[in-house]
Structure formats: structure tokens, C-alpha cells
Write a protein that binds this DNA or RNA. Structure first.
Length: 200
DNA sequence: CCAACGATGGTCT
DNA sequence: GACCATCGTTGGC
């Protein structure tokens, strides 16, 4: 079942945690979301929206439940889901997914057979799913791109976010404990920011 | 194993 | 002109 409007209206950090274990569906492709990061409007210098609305970040200031897709380092795309209140730029970055459906197409696009390497990073999963700037600002309440519910109740870990220069001290990254599809899983087992495990 | 680095182009000042 | 919410490769140990 695709999730509806109310799911995307919850506070951004809540949504970032609630997305773990849910299913990202895009056409015939799908996978379990295993890692997210929250980006906040207030007191978050790492957030694209922190210095006001611009051409690029405009979707973040729109209604919750739309996609915000942007080009990073000239060659990769990052997929975010807009959250929070309209007029306040907040979103959740999808950082890693456990592939479920459409694995052969993902393998072709990613030029690797290894399942763990298909969607274990924000640039990798957009490549595997075929998500680009053309999907920027699409609504997840209709059409091909959706979040489906699931019965998964993951054990959630928290850490600092990855790859930022500003706002790196904030603990706004969330991932499923021990999941081998989380980005950098082979690096540091407990990932840069350690942290106690939060219930659920 | 791992740290370092280059590719590559849109966006913002 | 600088800065990137990244990734694959390279070269050292």
C-alpha cells in the first residue's frame, strides 16, 4: 500500500526514522529503505535551504511528499523527500536501499553483479533506479514514484551525517542496525558516529 | 586493507 | 571562481 499525505506531514526527524523499513517503489523497481538523513530548516547549516530559497532548492519549500532531486559533483543525483511545513525547507535524503525488485536492471545500470553494491549510497541508488533531475519535484502521492508501507520494525541507529562540511556535528543520520546494504558498511562496522541504539 | 585523488557540471556569490 | 548531501580507482602498506 502506498503511503499517503499524513505520512509526509510528520516532523522531519520522525519521518527520517519512519522511512527506515519502508519500500521505495519506482515503476517495476523496488527496495527497502535502510539509511536516511534529515535536513532541517532551522539551525542546520548543512541544509540546502539554510540560506533561503534559490532556484535549486525551491522544491524543499513546497508541500511535503514531493521529490527533491539534485545533481551532485557533476555526475550523481541525490533523492530527497520533502517534509515539514510548506514554506520551511526541510527534507529527508534517501542514502541507501536494500534491493528487492528489478535487480537485473539495477545490475546493468550499475555495471556490477554484487547486490550489496547496487544501492548502498545516495548516488548509487539513483543510478540503479534511474532517478534523475527529470524527476525533481514529482509528487509521491501519485504516479510511478511511491513509498509503500511494510511491517518491518527496524532497530534504528543514529550518527552524524556523511560528506558535509557545515553542520557535520548534528546527529541526523539514521540507519538499520547491522544491515549490510547501509553505505560504508564494510568500513567501520558501527559507522563514524557510533551512538546508542534507539528503540522501536 | 585504506587514504588520497580526480572526474565533472550545475548552482550560487 | 568556488563549492559541492559522491564514487571508483589508484597506489601505498
Amino acid at each position: 500500500m502506498p503511503l499517503g499525505k499524513n505520512f509526509f506531514k510528520q516532523p522531519t526527524v520522525d519521518m527520517a526514522r519512519a522511512l527506515l523499513g519502508k519500500i521505495l517503489v519506482f515503476g517495476d523497481l523496488s527496495g527497502i529503505i535502510v539509511e536516511t538523513e534529515a535536513y532541517l530548516y532551522r539551525d542546520d547549516p548543512g541544509c540546502h535551504a539554510s540560506r533561503g530559497q534559490t532556484g535549486r532548492n525551491a522544491p524543499m519549500f513546497g508541500p511535503a511528499g514531493h521529490a527533491y532531486v539534485y545533481l551532485i559533483y557533476g555526475m550523481y543525483h541525490c533523492l530527497n523527500i520533502v517534509s515539514g511545513k510548506k514554506g520551511e525547507g526541510e527534507a529527508v535524503l534517501i542514502r541507501a536501499i536494500e534491493p528487492v525488485q528489478g535487480i537485473s536492471l539495477m545490475q546493468k545500470r550499475r555495471k556490477t553483479k554484487k547486490i550489496e553494491n547496487l544501492c548502498n549510497g545516495p548516488g548509487k541508488l539513483t543510478q540503479a533506479f534511474g532517478i534523475t533531475r527529470r524527476h525533481n519535484n514529482l509528487s509521491l502521492l501519485e504516479g510511478d514514484l511511491r513509498i509503500h508501507n511494510s511491517r518491518i520494525k527496524p532497530l534504528i541507529c543514529t550518527s552524524r551525517r556523511i560528506g558535509l562540511s557545515a553542520g557535520k556535528e548534528l546527529e541526523l543520520r539514521f540507519y538499520i542496525d547491522g544491515n549490510r546494504f547501509v553505505s560504508g558498511f564494510n568500513k567501520n562496522l558501527n559507522n563514524a558516529g557510533q551512538k546508542e541504539r534507539n528503540k522501536l
